[in-house]
Computed example of a mutant assay.
Amino acid sequence: MMKRETLFLKVTLVIMALPILALCIFVVPLVAEFLAELVPNLAFLQYPFQIGLYVAALIYFVALYQTLKLLTYIDRDTAFSDASVTVLKNIKLCALIIGTLFVVFMPLIFMMGDADDAPGLIVIGLGIIFGCMVIAVFAAVLQKLLQNAIDIKSENDLTV
């Protein structure tokens, strides 16, 4: 019944993963080297910054996998289950962790933007933080709504 729509969303998830994978392979090492060149007194932070970006990407892939699991539950007509609530909780947690990582990285991003006179870096960092927070709040609202729907459904099943 929902197979066509969820297939489209699954393909979209794969397409969303590809640019981040490309960024991890090609851009992240260059950004870490760029940080060391721009701010030489903080060159020792090059590798922790790079590792942090890889961790953020890994958590992003975990969130995409959780979304894929949620779409699979929808395909199987088990969307109104505790497993779906758990998946939404995991997506919320992933978004919060990524947002927190970028809050921690924001001083470095600010220094890079200030040294290179590129305020766009700061805007990109803030955009990622706010985007993660929006996703976390949205997942929390969906989690609460889904939990309420499951509770109402179980009450109705008990009364019949």
Rank of each mutant, 00 (worst) to 15 (best):
L9R: 15
I135C: 12
N156Y: 13
L142S: 05
T100R: 04
P19K: 08
I150V: 01
L68C: 05
V31Y: 15
D75R: 09
V87A: 13
V27M: 10
A79M: 07
F102Q: 10
G127R: 08
V85W: 01
F138T: 15
F80S: 03
I20A: 15
A32C: 15
P107C: 14
L18N: 09
N41A: 06
I109N: 01
V123A: 14
P119K: 07
E155H: 04
P40L: 11
F110T: 09
V11E: 13
F130H: 04
D75N: 14
Q66Y: 00
D151V: 02
V134N: 07
I98F: 03
L108P: 01
D75F: 05
F49H: 04
V103I: 15
L71N: 03
Y65K: 12
L71F: 02
F138W: 03
L142T: 00
K69C: 04
I150L: 00
L96M: 14
V11S: 11
L121I: 05
I109Q: 07
R4I: 03
C24H: 08
L108T: 04
P119V: 06
S81Y: 06
V103K: 14
I74S: 12
F80D: 02
K10P: 04
V62T: 11
I98K: 07
V31G: 06
G127M: 05
A118C: 08
C24N: 09
F110P: 03
V85L: 03
Y73H: 14
V134E: 07
I20H: 05
K144G: 00
F80V: 01
I97W: 04
I152L: 08
L21G: 15
I97T: 12
M16S: 13
G99A: 13
A139F: 03
T100I: 04
A136R: 03
V39G: 11
I25Q: 14
G52K: 03
Y54T: 05
L7E: 12
V87C: 12
A149Q: 13
F61E: 11
I152P: 00
F26V: 11
P107V: 15
K69W: 01
V134M: 13
F44S: 13
A136C: 08
G125D: 04
P19C: 10
E33M: 07
Q66N: 06
Y60W: 10
V14L: 05
T86K: 05
I135P: 01
L7M: 12
I98H: 00
Y65T: 14
N41D: 04
A118I: 10
L9G: 10
N41I: 03
F105D: 11
F138M: 15
A22S: 12
I135K: 01
A63F: 05
F130K: 09
T12G: 15
D77I: 08
T100V: 01
A79W: 02
V31K: 12
L93K: 02
G52H: 01
F61M: 13
A17H: 03
K153D: 02
F44R: 09
I20V: 15
I98S: 02
